[in-house]
């Protein structure tokens, strides 16, 4: 029964993705195309956070660091070394993933609030290093608060739509893999009871590290794409803690540790901020604060999580 529902959802998902691939041919309005790209972009980013924190229960408060590393790697590779975009994109993902591997080994031993604070500290430290490195060592590498201007791409919005779509597709597919593999069951076991999982033979360290590194890899890709899209990056922008907050809130609204959680949460919040943000600029952040508080108090499991409990379904 559950297996069947999952299959159906996967087929629907594949269908939607396939349909989306033809979207730029039909959408006339550049604004609409851009909005859809932004929604897909955030689904992917929130998904990256969900992959790690949603499933393992290890709350990462510094995922933006891998996004920022991705942006900087692509910027430096393109401007300083003249590497074209797609190879640079790939390098960004690899470097983000490798940094996550090195940082993950000591950090993932920490639990609860300590892990959250350590990841947060790491992200802030990287931001400050990117800001101050050049001035301290008198070189021109990160270009500090001046930021880096990437080569203007000359591509239109549909180019970036086609960059973002496959990456988000892979992220959501990775969720499906997590839901249906030994690796994923391991992650869920870590969330429920880490010691018990370890005793039962789950290699908890390898599982956590695997989730952390793959989440960082995808975040690196997203960071690189955004840098090329915006063409101008500064440390305060790409390492902005607001991005972390947004990922967390989106996932939480949708439902942590669920397959559809980030999809629903990111779509909901992006559309809300697009409609309310423009109309009630002054009250927007107050309302977001209120939405967060109310959501936590009345449905702590998120939209999808609450649905699952109410319908007693084990799907997604």
């Amino acid at each position: 029964m559950n297996f069947k529902i999952d299959r159906i959802i996967l087929i629907i998902f594949l269908g939607i993705t396939a349909a989306l691939a033809f979207l730029p041919n039909f959408v006339e309005s550049e604004y609409l195309l851009r909005l859809i790209t932004v929604v897909i972009f955030w689904i992917g980013i929130a998904g990256c956070w969900n992959m790690m924190s949603g499933y393992t229960g290890y709350i990462d408060f510094g995922p933006v660091v891998y996004f920022g590393i991705g942006s900087y790697v692509v910027a430096i590779a393109m401007t300083k070394y003249g590497i074209p975009f797609f190879p640079s994109l790939f390098i960004s993902g690899l470097i983000s993933g490798s940094v996550a591997f090195l940082v993950g080994i000591p950090t993932l031993r920490l639990k609860g609030a300590y892990f959250a604070i350590a990841t947060f500290a790491f992200a802030e430290a990287m931001k400050q290093i990117a800001l101050e490195f050049d001035r301290t060592f008198s070189v021109s590498f990160f270009q500090g608060s001046d930021g880096i201007t990437l080569p203007i791409s000359g591509h239109d919005n549909s180019f970036f739509f086609y960059c973002v779509l496959p990456v988000t597709f892979l992220v959501v597919l990775a969720h499906y893999y997590i839901e249906h593999s030994k690796f994923g069951y391991g992650l869920k076991a870590i969330k429920e009871a880490e010691t018990a999982a370890e005793i039962s033979g789950v290699n908890t360290t390898a599982n956590k590290l695997g989730a952390y590194v793959s989440s960082a890899f995808f975040l690196g890709l997203f960071g690189a794409i955004e840098a090329y899209w915006i063409t101008y990056i500064t440390p305060s922008d790409v390492f902005n803690v607001q991005k972390t907050v947004q990922m967390v809130i989106m996932t939480l609204l949708g439902g942590m540790g669920t397959f559809l959680g980030p999809v629903v949460g990111a779509t909901f919040l992006t559309l809300i901020s697009e409609s309310l943000g423009a109309r009630f600029v002054e009250y927007y952040l107050i309302m977001i604060g209120g939405i967060i508080i109310v959501a936590i108090l009345i449905m702590p499991n998120g939209i999808i999580g609450s649905l699952k409990i109410r319908k007693k379904l084990r799907f997604i």
Binding site: G57, A116, L252, L285, I286, I293, I296, P300
Partner: peptide, 27 residues
């Protein structure tokens, strides 16, 4: 209301409070 739930709930809840208090103060 969130005591006894996973710690993440209290982070997010107090972050929501942060947003509300700071932005009402700005207003």
């Amino acid at each position: 209301r969130v005591i006894g739930q996973p710690h993440i709930m209290s982070y997010i809840l107090t972050f929501g409070l942060h947003l509300m208090i700071a932005n009402i103060a700005i207003k």
